[in-house]
Amino acid sequence: MDSLVVLVLCLSCLLLLSLWRQSSGRGKLPPGPTPLPVIGNILQIGIKDISKSLTNLSKVYGPVFTLYFGLKPIVVLHGYEAVKEALIDLGEEFSGRGIFPLAERANRGFGIVFSNGKKWKEIRRFSLMTLRNFGMGKRSIEDRVQEEARCLVEELRKTKASPCDPTFILGCAPCNVICSIIFHKRFDYKDQQFLNLMEKLNENIKILSSPWIQICNNFSPIIDYFPGTHNKLLKNVAFMKSYILEKVKEHQESMDMNNPQDFIDCFLMKMEKEKHNQPSEFTIESLENTAVDLFGAGTETTSTTLRYALLLLLKHPEVTAKVQEEIERVIGRNRSPCMQDRSHMPYTDAVVHEVQRYIDLLPTSLPHAVTCDIKFRNYLIPKGTTILISLTSVLHDNKEFPNPEMFDPHHFLDEGGNFKKSKYFMPFSAGKRICVGEALAGMELFLFLTSILQNFNLKSLVDPKNLDTTPVVNGFASVPPFYQLCFIPV
């Protein structure tokens, strides 16, 4: 009986604490739906499609509103004006990374994606500088992407125009580009180590996009005490870190300090320079996690976009025909596509942009946080508050993009057929937390897609009208449904 009384008292205290925290903070924060004790607004949000729920709530509470995930307040920004004001106009104040408990377990605050403060700034600055020195957006990395595009075309030829699921092959190409940047090595598509790495990356994007992960991140005790797919994700990350550590040891034994070959060499050189400046942010643990982040951000996002792009091109054969006509006119058949071609191919450029806009790969991006107490639109948001960005509300804005739910390359073309930029184009987020590999991803999408369409016609196994382009999961990332196609050599 005594234990029951204690339990009831504990629960009562928890409920009172929950109510007090919510009521004391709500006077400062933007308005929002009334949260339930302990669980907050979790029942009012469709976990399978958070973005749709945010759109519905914005119609009631406006472009800036507050939700509670458990006891934790989260300020939501919906629509271009609110997102721009926060991420661009007040970029420094909104540059923090929001709480992501599962990532905390995986990387302990290291790396480039989930770190904060001085650690994040130094690692991000170093990573950007190193990638630029190796030619991100310049010639040397373009050579690597072109080489991988040629290998991709050869792998597709091996399908002999038979029906195939493109998931694996389209994942190999961007993964190999990242391998060449980090390890100075590309792998054969049949290499077992490479296959294991690909498998872990593919599993992780599916797990991260599941409703279960949303629950884990908002009720963090689940991570330590409950079984579930989150444990598989943590094991996959541990596998990748151990693999990278092996490569780091190989580099330490063979590195030429006067001739760095890749990202690992550059990081080890930085560690050597910083060894007298303790404590340094440049450690082996930081290198492991930064490399894992580059793999995660640079492989599955690009391969998922490529997979979605081919599905949309199957669905819209008239678009595919126009792209192939432009390829034939500008590039021809006797040389590989290059980035200089893009400025002469406005329709193809528009298609690449429209694919990214339409699929809305990361509907709410990753959570941000404010780095200080900030007054925002007459609300006071306390330091450390998590900020949720609705990228969907920007990419699918119906004023900027008429009929935003329709796939239409003319969203990025003017009346004369010239490519038209849009400030609403934010597939990689915006501001200080914009994806480090934005330029690389854009290069890969253009070169891989043009190389495929230069060499193959795409054949659907069903009537294009019957192809479903609805994402199968739409949590962290929008993942396309399973499909097969035939690559018919031109």
Rank of each mutant, 00 (worst) to 15 (best):
Thr167Val: 03
Leu485Pro: 00
Ile488Cys: 12
Glu85Ser: 08
Ser280Gly: 07
Thr320Phe: 02
Phe425Asp: 09
Pro30Val: 02
Pro163His: 03
Tyr61Asp: 00
Ser393Tyr: 00
Lys247Ser: 08
Pro363Gly: 06
Thr159Trp: 05
Gln454Glu: 03
Phe376Ser: 04
Gln44Cys: 07
Leu77Ser: 01
Ile207Val: 07
Gln340Ser: 14
Lys383Leu: 04
Lys247Asn: 06
Pro63Gly: 11
Asn196His: 11
Gly475Gln: 05
Leu77His: 01
Phe69Lys: 06
Phe226Ala: 07
Leu380Thr: 14
Gly46Arg: 11
Leu306Val: 04
Leu29Thr: 03
Lys160Ile: 03
Ser280Arg: 08
Asn259Ser: 09
Phe126Ser: 06
Arg144Ile: 15
Phe69Cys: 14
Thr320Tyr: 04
Asn398His: 14
His276Gly: 13
Leu485Val: 14
Arg342Ile: 10
Leu391Asp: 02
Pro33Ile: 02
Ile434Cys: 11
Asp256Asn: 10
Glu318Val: 08
Gly62Val: 01
Glu246Cys: 06
Ile359Thr: 12
Cys216His: 09
Asp191Ile: 01
His368Leu: 06
Tyr347Leu: 05
Arg132Pro: 04
Glu142Arg: 01
Glu199Ala: 12
Ala369Asn: 15
Glu328Ala: 15
Tyr61Val: 02
Arg105Cys: 07
Phe134Leu: 14
Ser3Tyr: 14
Phe482Gly: 13
Gly296Met: 06
Leu233Ser: 03
Asn204Ile: 14
Thr159Asn: 04
Tyr68Asp: 03
Ile331His: 01
Ile488Val: 15
Arg377Ile: 02
Phe94Lys: 02
Leu461Val: 15
Trp120Cys: 09
Ile50Ala: 12
Val479His: 14
Glu326Val: 00
Val237Lys: 03
Pro489Phe: 00
Phe263Pro: 02
Phe100His: 15
Asp349Ala: 14
Phe376Arg: 03
Ser390Pro: 05
Asn466Lys: 12
Glu203Lys: 07
Ser127Lys: 03
Lys158Cys: 06
Leu54Asn: 04
Asp463Trp: 02
Pro260Val: 05
Pro346Glu: 04
Phe412Gly: 00
Gly46Ile: 04
Phe126Glu: 06
Asp165Ile: 00
Pro33His: 02
Lys241Met: 02
Phe126Val: 10
Leu11Gly: 14
Gln278Gly: 14
Gly171Ile: 02
Thr320Ala: 10
Asn277Thr: 12
Ala477Arg: 15
Leu233Thr: 05
Gly475Asn: 05
Ser58Val: 08
Tyr483Cys: 02
Phe65Cys: 03
Met129Tyr: 11
Leu366Gln: 11
Asp397Gly: 09
Gln22Phe: 14
Ile244Val: 14
Ala321Arg: 15
Arg21Ser: 13
Cys175Ile: 07
Gly109Tyr: 10
Val60Leu: 12
Ser343Gly: 12
Arg433Phe: 00
Arg132Val: 05
Thr320Val: 07
Lys185Phe: 03
Leu17Thr: 13
Cys372Pro: 00
His184Thr: 13
Lys273Gly: 10
Arg377Trp: 06
Ile123Ala: 15
Lys375Ala: 09
Val323Asn: 01
Thr304Pro: 02
Glu93Cys: 08
Phe419Val: 08
Phe487Met: 01
Arg150Phe: 07
Ala477Tyr: 07
Asn455Met: 06
Cys435Lys: 00
Asn236Ala: 03
Lys119Ile: 05
Asn398Ile: 09
Glu288Thr: 15
Pro409Gly: 01
Lys273Ser: 13
Pro166Gly: 00
Ile359Met: 08
Ala86Arg: 02
Asn474Phe: 05
Gly296Arg: 03
Lys158Leu: 08
Asp165Glu: 04
Ala291Ile: 14
Ser422Asn: 11
Leu312Pro: 00
Leu311Pro: 01
Val60Ile: 13
Gln44Ile: 06
Phe476Met: 15
Thr304Asp: 05
Asn398Phe: 10
Lys84Glu: 07
Glu92Ala: 11
Glu272Lys: 10
Asn236Cys: 02
Val319Gly: 02
Cys164Val: 13
Glu354Ile: 00
Ala350Ile: 02
Asp373Gly: 04
Leu201Ile: 10
Thr283His: 11
Ser58Arg: 10
Ser460Tyr: 01
Phe194Cys: 03
Phe407Cys: 00
Phe226Gln: 05
Arg186Ile: 00
Met271Pro: 05
Met129Asn: 12
Asp463Val: 04
Asn217Leu: 08
Glu326Gly: 01
His78Cys: 15
Phe401Met: 05
Pro489Ser: 03
Val75Ser: 00
Lys158Tyr: 04
Ser220Phe: 14
Leu9Met: 13
Ile327Gln: 02
Thr55Tyr: 13
Gln252Thr: 08
Leu54Ile: 15
Gly111His: 01
Ala350Glu: 00
Met339Val: 06
Thr386Cys: 08
Ile39Ala: 10
Tyr243Pro: 02
Lys121Ser: 13
Leu366Thr: 12
Arg335Met: 05
Ile39Met: 10
Gln454Thr: 02
Leu19His: 13
Ala321Thr: 13
Leu77Gly: 01
Val248Ile: 15
Asp293Cys: 05
Cys13Leu: 14
Asn218Thr: 15
Asn217Met: 08
Cys216Ser: 15
Phe100Ala: 15
Trp212Asn: 05
Arg433Cys: 01
Ser209Leu: 09
Met129Lys: 14
Ile213Leu: 15
Ile47Val: 13
Glu281Cys: 09
Ala173Leu: 02
Val113Ser: 12
Arg342Lys: 15
Leu77Ala: 04
Asp408Tyr: 02
Asp224Thr: 13
Met271Phe: 06
Val177Gly: 01
Asp341Gly: 01
Val479Tyr: 11
Asp408Ser: 07
Lys84Thr: 09
Asn56Pro: 13
Leu7Arg: 10
Leu7Asn: 09
Pro409Phe: 01
Cys175Tyr: 05
Gly40Ala: 02
Pro367Gly: 10
Lys232Gln: 09
His411Lys: 05
Arg124Thr: 05
Phe425Leu: 07
Phe110Leu: 14
Pro33Tyr: 03
Glu253Arg: 13
Ile141Asp: 00
Asn418Met: 10
Asn41Pro: 04
Lys247Met: 08
Pro227Phe: 13
Arg186Thr: 03
Leu67Ile: 12
Val462Glu: 11
Met136Pro: 10
Leu195Thr: 08
Leu67Pro: 01
Asn56Tyr: 10
Met129Asp: 06
Lys270Arg: 13
Asp468Val: 11
Ile284Trp: 09
Pro337Arg: 01
Thr229Ile: 15
Leu391His: 08
Thr299Arg: 07
Glu203Tyr: 05
Phe263Met: 10
Thr348Gly: 02
Pro402Thr: 13
Asp224Phe: 10
Arg21Thr: 13
Lys48Gln: 11
Leu311Gln: 02
Phe126Lys: 03
His410Asp: 12
Tyr358Ser: 04
Arg124Cys: 03
Arg329His: 13
Lys190Asp: 13
Phe419Ser: 06
Glu81Gln: 10
Lys48Ile: 06
Leu87Ala: 11
Lys119Ser: 15
Gly98Ser: 15
Thr229Asp: 15
Lys241Ser: 04
Asp256Val: 08
Val323Tyr: 04
Asn334His: 13
Asp463Phe: 02
Asn56Arg: 14
Tyr225Gln: 07
Gln356Thr: 09
Phe194Val: 03
Lys190Val: 05
Phe487Leu: 03
Lys121Met: 09
Leu453Cys: 10
Cys164Ile: 15
Glu288Phe: 08
Asp414Tyr: 04
Leu7Lys: 14
Leu170Asn: 00
Val76Met: 04
Glu148Ser: 01
Thr371Gln: 12
Ser127Met: 11
Glu122Tyr: 07
His344Asn: 13
Asp256Arg: 09
His316Met: 05
Ile387Gly: 02
Val292His: 02
Arg329Asp: 13
Glu325Phe: 10
Lys72Asn: 11
Pro101Arg: 10
Gly117Arg: 08
Pro382Arg: 08
Ser53His: 12
Asp468Met: 12
Asp360Thr: 13
Cys266Pro: 03
Leu4Phe: 14
Asn455Thr: 10
Glu104Ala: 13
Asn196Gly: 10
Ala161Cys: 14
Leu388Trp: 15
Arg335Thr: 07
Gly384Thr: 03
Cys338His: 08
Lys190Gly: 11
Phe456Ser: 00
Ile39Ser: 05
Phe94Gly: 06
Phe487Asn: 00
Trp120His: 13
Val64Thr: 07
Val436Thr: 12
Gly46Tyr: 09
Ser95Asp: 09
Ser429Thr: 06
His230Ile: 09
Arg132Ala: 05
Asn56Ala: 13
Val8Ile: 14
Asn474Gln: 14
Arg150Gly: 09
Pro464Asn: 04
Pro101Asn: 13
Gly384Glu: 04
Val237Tyr: 07
Ile223Asn: 08
Ile141Val: 09
Asp397Ala: 10
Arg97Glu: 00
Gly62Glu: 01
Thr348Ile: 05
Leu90Thr: 14
Leu4Asn: 12
Val292Arg: 03
Asp468Gly: 06
Thr305Gln: 03
Ile374Tyr: 09
Gly475Ile: 05
Arg125Phe: 02
Thr283Ala: 07
Thr283Arg: 06
Phe456Gly: 01
Thr392Gly: 13
Tyr80Gly: 08
Ser286Leu: 10
Asp341Ser: 04
Leu233Pro: 06
Val83Ser: 07
Lys84Gly: 06
Arg105Glu: 11
Val352His: 02
Tyr483Gly: 01
Tyr379Ile: 05
Leu29Trp: 08
Pro382Gly: 04
Val330Ile: 14
Leu208Ser: 14
Phe263Cys: 10
Leu208Arg: 10
Thr469Gln: 05
Val472Asn: 09
Lys399Met: 10
Cys486Pro: 00
Asp265Lys: 04
Pro337His: 01
Pro317Val: 06
Arg21Gly: 12
Gln356Glu: 07
Pro166Glu: 02
Thr66Cys: 05
Ile223Ala: 15
Pro31Glu: 07
Ser390Val: 07
Arg144Phe: 08
